[in-house]
C-alpha cells in the first residue's frame, strides 16, 4: 500500500457535516428550514423580531430596573433591599386619596365615554349621516392629540375667557368667572372623555360592523322596539367590543397625565408620581408607585381578557 493510499486518520463525521448540524433541532429548523412549517416559523420570528427587541430593551429591562429601584436602599444607586417605599405607599393618606381619585375618576369617565361612544358608533353604523367621512375624521382626531393640548382646548372652551363659558354667561346674565369649569373636576372630566371617547369608538365601530342586521330586523318584526332590539340582540353581539373598549379606555384613564398637569383639578396617580420626583427626587417611592400602577393595569387586563372573549392587546 502506498503511503498516499494509506488512511492518515479515521474520518470525523462531525467535521465533514455542515455546521448547522451541530445546532439543536429547534434552532437548526430556523437556520436551515426543511419543511413549510419550519419556514413559517422563521417568517413569524422575522416579523416579530423588531417587537421582541423593542419589548426587551424598552419594556422588560426598564420595568425590571424600576422594580429594583423601588426596593433600593440608596437613592442614586440600586443597592441593598428595603420596602420602605411600599410601606410609605400603604400608609400615606395623600397617596391613598390619589389612588382612590384615580380609580373612581377613571371608572366614571370610562362609563360615560363608553356610553357616548356606543351611541355614536350606533348612529354611524345604522344611519346614513351627512358628511360622514368628515365626521369620522373629527371624531377620531383627539386620539392623536397630546393630553396637554386637550387640556388647553378645554380652557379655551370652558375657562374664564372660554367661548362656551362666555356664551352661557351672556344668556344667563351671570359672571363668566362663576361659570368657568375648565380647571374644576367637571372640566377635567370633559377633558378625559374628550381623549377617551375616540379610543372606545375605534373598537366599537369594528364591533358594530359585524352586527347581524338581519337579526335586528327579525327582532323588530317580532315586536321588539328599537330599545329592546338593542338590549336583546345588538348588545350581546357588541359585548366583546364593549369589554375591549372598557379595558382600553380605563387603562387610558389611568395613564392620563398631561391633562391633569395643566388643569390641576384633582391629584391622581400619574400626577403624584411626577410630584414625588419633582419634590425631593423620591425615586424609590416614584418607582414603587409605577410598579403598583403596572401590576394593577396588567392584572386588570389579564383578568378582563380571561373572563371575556374580548380581543384587545395587553
Amino acid at each position: 500500500m502506498d503511503a498516499e493510499d494509506a488512511p492518515t486518520s479515521t474520518p470525523n463525521l462531525s467535521d465533514s457535516a455542515p455546521r448547522s448540524a451541530r445546532l439543536p433541532d429547534s434552532v437548526r429548523a430556523l437556520v436551515a428550514p426543511r419543511t413549510e412549517r419550519d419556514r413559517e416559523r422563521r417568517r413569524i420570528l422575522a416579523l416579530c423580531a423588531p417587537f421582541l427587541v423593542l419589548a426587551a430593551v424598552a419594556g422588560i429591562y426598564p420595568l425590571a430596573e424600576m422594580a429594583r429601584i423601588s426596593v433600593s436602599e440608596a437613592r442614586f444607586v440600586s443597592t441593598g433591599f428595603s420596602v420602605d417605599a411600599y410601606v410609605d405607599l400603604a400608609t400615606n393618606q395623600y397617596l391613598r386619596r390619589a389612588a382612590w381619585n384615580t380609580l373612581w375618576f377613571g371608572l366614571a369617565t370610562t362609563a360615560v365615554s363608553l356610553l357616548a361612544a356606543t351611541a355614536t358608533a350606533h348612529a354611524l353604523q345604522k344611519y346614513t349621516l351627512p358628511a360622514e367621512d368628515l365626521l369620522v375624521t373629527l371624531l377620531s382626531f383627539p386620539v392623536s392629540l397630546p393630553g396637554i393640548v386637550a387640556a388647553f382646548m378645554i380652557i379655551v372652551l370652558l375657562g374664564n375667557t372660554g367661548l362656551l363659558t362666555n356664551a352661557v354667561a351672556w344668556f344667563a346674565g351671570e359672571s363668566a368667572i362663576d361659570l368657568a369649569v375648565a380647571t374644576g373636576v367637571a372640566g377635567l372630566f370633559i377633558a378625559y372623555c374628550y381623549s377617551m371617547i375616540p379610543r372606545a369608538l375605534l373598537l366599537l365601530r369594528g364591533s358594530y360592523a359585524e352586527v347581524n342586521e338581519r337579526a335586528e330586523e327579525a327582532a323588530r318584526s317580532l315586536g321588539a322596539s328599537p330599545a329592546r332590539t338593542f338590549y336583546h340582540v345588538t348588545l350581546p353581539q357588541i359585548k366583546p367590543g364593549l369589554i375591549g373598549a372598557f379595558i382600553l379606555t380605563f387603562r387610558t384613564a389611568l395613564a392620563i397625565f398631561g391633562t391633569v398637569l395643566v388643569l390641576q383639578a384633582m391629584r391622581v396617580w400619574t400626577y403624584e408620581i411626577d410630584y414625588v420626583l419633582s419634590n425631593g427626587f423620591q425615586i424609590q417611592l416614584a418607582a414603587a408607585m409605577a410598579v403598583v400602577w403596572f401590576v394593577f393595569v396588567l392584572a386588570f387586563t389579564v383578568l378582563g381578557l380571561k373572563y371575556t372573549s374580548a380581543e384587545v392587546g395587553l
Binding site: 327579525a218 336583546h232 350581546p236
Partner: peptide
C-alpha cells in the same frame, strides 16, 4: 314592531345568543 309580520331570511338571522327555544319564544315574549 307594530305590524305583526313574520320574517324568514335567506341568512336565517337567528339570535345566536339564545337557544332554539328562546329564539322561538322571543316574539311572543315581546
Amino acid at each position: 314592531e307594530t305590524r305583526n309580520v313574520g320574517l324568514v331570511f335567506q341568512s336565517y338571522a337567528l339570535f345566536e345568543n339564545m337557544t332554539v327555544r328562546q329564539n322561538v319564544e322571543f316574539g311572543p315574549k315581546m
